[in-house]
Deep mutational scan, measured.
Amino acid sequence: MAAGGDHGSPDSYRSPLASRYASPEMCFVFSDRYKFRTWRQLWLWLAEAEQTLGLPITDEQIQEMKSNLENIDFKMAAEEEKRLRHDVMAHVHTFGHCCPKAAGIIHLGATSCYVGDNTDLIILRNALDLLLPKLARVISRLADFAKERASLPTLGFTHFQPAQLTTVGKRCCLWIQDLCMDLQNLKRVRDDLRFRGVKGTTGTQASFLQLFEGDDHKVEQLDKMVTEKAGFKRAFIITGQTYTRKVDIEVLSVLASLGASVHKICTDIRLLANLKEMEEPFEKQQIGSSAMPYKRNPMRSERCCSLARHLMTLVMDPLQTASVQWFERTLDDSANRRICLAEAFLTADTILNTLQNISEGLVVYPKVIERRIRQELPFMATENIIMAMVKAGGSRQDCHEKIRVLSQQAASVVKQEGGDNDLIERIQVDAYFSPIHSQLDHLLDPSSFTGRASQQVQRFLEEEVYPLLKPYESVMKVKAELCL
């Protein structure tokens, strides 16, 4: 049975990233139509530049190519590739079939990587351009969430054990800070992308030097003109047959890092959902379990974690691919890159769409948070109580021993009897502590235990987050809708 299948058929496997999760716009960027249309555009740009620099290419040939950029006979191309065992030459023939007058000058002087690699770089750039505003929107939604809850005390956790208090907004800023680093890295790697350009079979530009009869300047002009037509500021000066596969490492490393950030955020949300302090959106008709109707599973956060793990592992592909590119190139890269580049971007696209949807509907339960604080705060307040007693004339050592005994009794009630923490009640009825009984409410005010959390939130948002989001103001209103 021949390899390949009808990918629109229910009898043929289709990647869930495309069929179930990723956005239509990201799927289109990695589609065959987008790819092969870009090949034709690159052939047109090459012909236009070659004509401008004096090669015998007519206006009629150029116009014929322009008129057929979208006229792609995919069936013919597939048949040609089956016959020739070469995808680029299959599309040269297919393009030439609908451009008979231009057929002889299509791909003039070029090698397969002229269309293959340059198209990949265009796709990487455009895919990054799709991700950047999506990530900015996630940051914006979380920034709104953090600002609104900047002063809401909550129990902090280290080692997932109760620690000092923080605020809900401050905790959210930990998430935002990681995503801001990801946004900066995505922008950097996007701006650092260079075009492969017009380089020939081993990167020496020998074929173009021959076409222009040894004119170095025209060869350099050709490279520059096509690079500018493709919208790049610069091209690699040095290439082998391909652009260095280190570029793929750079791009997928940034995406993998984004995956790590999203995994951490969504894990926190899942843990908070278990504590009943916070939940992701839950639709009115949504079913959490087929057997347990009360369940409210954090399905979206779980999906993000599941896909983020996949995204983090994909960076190993370009690392290994770059390491086995012998001399000017081997074909070890080809099949692998067809999979890992598309999957990385479709996965990143999915987790950003999902995280935006989550961040637009996060639900906080202040009463649950308050109750958990009441359970733990008495123990945390013991040092403040000791200091207040010393100020009232008591002995630190005597007070410490009193607190120690009462704390152990209260802990026994919590752990052995399943009761509430009654340390404060014990202190309130103990005559030894009568000098500070009137101060206990103040000493137990949760806001006095959150330090500068709310001020940190305000400063972080104003100095770091809002300036970073400013270039994306025009796209901030787009909502994230999930079908599944």
Results as ranks from 00 to 15, higher is better:
Arg270Trp: 02
Thr313Gly: 12
Leu131Cys: 13
Asp87Gln: 04
Met65Glu: 00
Trp175Lys: 05
Leu121Ile: 10
Phe345Asp: 04
Val138Leu: 14
Ser447Phe: 10
His7Tyr: 14
Ile385His: 04
Tyr472Ser: 10
Arg40Gln: 05
Val465Pro: 00
Gly4Ser: 15
Pro16Cys: 13
Lys218Arg: 14
His97Trp: 13
Ala388Thr: 07
Gly393Pro: 04
Ser448Met: 15
Gly4Ala: 15
Ala136Leu: 14
Met65Ser: 04
Cys399Ile: 12
Lys246Arg: 06
Ser412Gln: 13
Ile105Ser: 14
Cys483Asp: 15
Arg171Asp: 00
Gln205Asp: 01
Gly394Met: 07
Gln241Asn: 00
Gln428Ser: 15
Leu128Tyr: 07
Ala146Pro: 01
Ser290Val: 02
Glu64Ile: 07
Leu307Pro: 01
Arg37Val: 09
Asp120Leu: 08
His7Glu: 12
Glu277Trp: 04
Arg190Ile: 09
Trp45Phe: 15
Met65Leu: 11
Asn353Met: 13
Gly203Thr: 03
Ile62His: 04
Leu355Glu: 01
Ala49Ile: 05
Ile123Gly: 09
Arg338Leu: 01
Leu179Gly: 06
Met89Tyr: 07
Tyr472Leu: 15
Leu44His: 09
Ser19Trp: 10
Ile62Ser: 04
Glu376Leu: 03
Met76Tyr: 11
Ala102Tyr: 03
Val364Ala: 06
Glu25Phe: 05
Gln177Lys: 04
Asn353Ala: 12
Val413Cys: 08
Ser447Leu: 15
Ser253Ala: 13
Asp191Ile: 10
Ala110Arg: 01
Ser323His: 04
Cys266Ile: 02
Gln458Tyr: 12
Leu179Cys: 09
Asp223Ile: 00
Ala273Met: 14
Val88Asn: 06
Glu370Arg: 11
Met89Trp: 01
Ile424Met: 15
Thr166Asp: 00
Gln184Asp: 14
Ala308Trp: 03
Ala256Val: 08
Glu277Asn: 02
Leu443Arg: 04
Gly169Ala: 03
His310Thr: 09
Ala342Trp: 10
His437Lys: 12
Ile386Thr: 12
Ser395Thr: 06
Gln241Trp: 02
Asn384Ala: 15
Arg245Lys: 08
Gln285Cys: 13
Leu423Cys: 03
Phe345Lys: 02
Asn421Pro: 13
Cys173Val: 06
Phe282Ile: 14
Gln416Cys: 11
Asp129Gln: 12
His7Trp: 10
Tyr365Arg: 13
Arg190Met: 13
Cys399Gly: 08
Asp317Lys: 03
His310Ala: 09
Cys173His: 02
Val405His: 12
Ala410Thr: 05
Ile57Val: 10
Pro435Thr: 07
Thr167Lys: 02
Tyr243Trp: 05
Val226Cys: 09
Cys180Gly: 12
Lys187Glu: 09
Trp45Lys: 02
Lys101Ile: 13
Ser454Lys: 15
Thr354Cys: 14
Ser359Tyr: 13
Lys367Cys: 08
Arg337Phe: 02
Ala22Gln: 09
Gln241Ala: 00
Phe195Thr: 06
Gly104Thr: 14
Asp398Lys: 13
Gly54Tyr: 02
Phe212Lys: 05
Asp178Ser: 07
Asn336Phe: 02
Asp11Gln: 09
Lys82Phe: 11
Tyr294Ala: 02
Leu258Asp: 01
Arg426Thr: 06
Asp420Ala: 04
Arg149Ile: 03
Arg329Gly: 03
Arg190Phe: 10
Phe232Thr: 02
Arg459His: 10
Val390Ile: 05
Asp333Phe: 00
Asp248Ala: 01
Lys284Cys: 14
Pro56Trp: 07
Ala3Ile: 15
Ala47Cys: 06
Met389Ala: 05
Asn68Glu: 14
Ala150His: 14
Val368Gly: 04
Ile269Leu: 07
Glu302Thr: 05
Asn185His: 11
Met26Arg: 02
Asp333Pro: 03
Thr52Cys: 14
Pro467Phe: 07
Ala49Cys: 10
Ile62Gly: 02
Glu228Ala: 11
Arg85Leu: 11
Ile106Val: 13
Phe236Val: 07
Phe212Pro: 04
Leu108Trp: 15
Thr347Phe: 14
Ser23Pro: 05
Gly451Ala: 07
Pro56Cys: 09
Gln428Pro: 02
Pro378Leu: 05
Ile373Asn: 06
Cys98Phe: 13
Thr154Ser: 12
Arg83Tyr: 14
Asp332Ala: 00
Gln286Ser: 02
Glu213Met: 15
Pro100Thr: 12
Ala273Gln: 09
Ala381Glu: 09
Arg194Thr: 06
Leu484Cys: 13
Phe74Gly: 14
Ala392Trp: 02
Val251Trp: 07
Asn118Ser: 04
Ile176Gly: 04
Ala22Cys: 15
Ile72Asp: 09
Glu70Gln: 11
Tyr294Glu: 00
Leu211Arg: 03
Asp73Phe: 10
Ile238Thr: 07
Thr350Gly: 09
Leu252Asp: 08
Val324Arg: 03
Ala103Phe: 09
Pro366Ser: 06
Pro366Cys: 03
Leu209Val: 11
Ala146Glu: 01
Phe160Gln: 00
Leu469Met: 11
Cys172Asn: 06
Val262Glu: 04
Tyr114Leu: 03
Lys101Arg: 13
Asn357Glu: 06
Val405Ile: 15
Ile369Gly: 08
Leu183Glu: 08
Ile287Leu: 08
Tyr432Ile: 06
Ile351Phe: 06
Asp178Gln: 08
Arg149Met: 14
Phe195Asn: 02
His97Gln: 13
Asn357Trp: 05
His437Asn: 08
Arg149His: 09
Leu183His: 13
Phe30Asp: 03
